[in-house]
């Protein structure tokens, strides 16, 4: 099985790019992203291994609370083509 450690920096960077692409002001985007990442980390604290789709689902679920478009793009960008 191909595993790699959870890279918070990479996730944060990707989310920031999506947020800027969607025209969300950077201050608001940073606040969303901090909240989302802390909640996701908390929910996976007891698990040693998670799949990419688990992570995507959890981040998407949290993002949906703040911005539906943001969550949609994050969850569906690999399903556009």
């Amino acid at each position: 099985m191909n595993t790699k450690p959870f890279d918070e920096k990479l996730l944060r960077k990707e989310l920031k790019i999506d947020a800027r692409g969607l025209g969300i002001p950077s201050g608001a985007a940073d606040a969303f992203i901090d909240c989302v990442i802390s909640k996701v980390e908390k929910s996976f604290r007891n698990k040693k291994i998670i799949t990419e789709s688990d992570l995507k689902r959890a981040v998407g679920k949290e993002l949906k609370k703040y911005n539906a478009d943001f969550a949609y793009v994050y969850q569906n960008r690999d399903k556009i083509i």
């Binding site: 790019i17 999506d18 800027r20 969607l22 083509i81």
Partner: peptide, 18 residues
């Protein structure tokens, strides 16, 4: 045809984000 326009919309999104 949807392939070129799909990739282009991704490029527009990422480019405006970066």
């Amino acid at each position: 045809l949807q392939l070129t326009s799909g990739v282009f919309s991704l490029l527009c999104h990422y480019a405006s984000g970066k």
